[in-house]
């Protein structure tokens, strides 16, 4: 008997996305939808999409959503979670959103140990506005505002937001993964599952940073873009568990 072994998850609408061919956002949307379905939390999950390419995430991920002003995902998610503590609240934010304009909101939400989950999509540039340098652009990376490549002494160093957040006492689980190969995609799904579980268990702030190809602004084919992220981006942003206190006593709402 033939069985269907892979199909669109229930919480991903049957809609063709506006994302470019090979964009990591599309893969990540599917993973978030799969995890929500597997954890059985679809009816009590609220998402907070960002400004940026993922601004229309509410057209695709089929749960309640509340759009945040640019960078303010963690602040909005905080408000929702505090008013509706039984909901599972996640923000979905790009690197320009979370690591530039939203740095203050993000760091303080993390430091307060808000029981929210942040999906941080790092593609090393401002995607929607045409590929300008972002704080996360890696050294030497070409962008429209660093046409000869990023030079730290002129343009600053790539911001390592996840490592910075790991210093905050309120953060419980932070992992960096990528959506650049079948293996890494499955690892990302496990990390998102763990991040949501951290919130379900009331332990504190969880975040998954996902290195995500932007073939259009990197000016590479989708296959080349995935390879570039694996070979070059991971030198600045190694894939690893950055912080994991989920098994530590005392992390249960104090």
């Amino acid at each position: 008997m033939e069985k269907k072994v892979f199909e669109r998850p229930r919480y991903l609408k049957k809609a063709s996305t506006h994302y470019c061919p090979g964009c990591g956002h599309s893969i990540l949307h599917r993973l978030v939808a799969e995890v929500i379905e597997e954890l059985g939390i679809g009816e009590r999950t609220i998402g907070v999409p960002p400004a940026g390419c993922a601004v229309l995430a509410y057209d695709y991920i089929d749960v309640d959503m509340g759009e945040a002003p640019h960078g303010r995902g963690a602040a909005l998610a905080t408000g929702i979670k505090r008013v509706l503590p039984d909901r599972i609240v996640f923000s979905y934010q790009g690197d320009g959103d979370i690591a530039a304009i939203g740095t203050a909101e993000t760091i303080h939400a993390a430091n307060r140990g808000e029981r929210i989950t942040v999906i941080f999509v790092n593609n090393g540039c401002y995607g929607m506005t045409g590929g300008q340098m972002a704080p996360t652009t890696v050294t030497g990376q070409l962008s429209t505002t660093t046409p000869g490549g990023r030079v730290p002494l002129r343009d600053g160093y790539p911001v390592d937001l996840s490592e910075m957040l790991a210093v905050a006492k309120g953060t419980v689980y932070i992992e960096r993964t990528s959506v650049t190969s079948p293996k890494n995609i499955l690892r990302t799904k496990r990390a998102i599952t763990k991040a949501f579980r951290t919130q379900i268990d009331g332990l504190g702030f969880s975040l998954v940073e996902v290195l995500s190809p932007c073939p259009t602004n990197w000016k590479l084919s989708p296959v080349e873009a995935a390879r570039w992220a694996e070979e070059t981006m991971t030198k600045t942003y190694p894939l690893k568990v950055i912080k994991d206190l989920t098994g530590t006593p005392g992390q249960d709402g104090n």
Binding site: K3, K4, V5, F6, E7, R8, L12, I27, P182
Partner: peptide, 20 residues
């Protein structure tokens, strides 16, 4: 072989996989 690898990487969820 119905291994689903293609569907796992497909950004646009255009692939469904069947296996015997």
């Amino acid at each position: 072989t119905g291994c689903t690898t293609c569907a796992i990487v497909c950004p646009d969820v255009a692939i469904e996989v069947y296996r015997e």
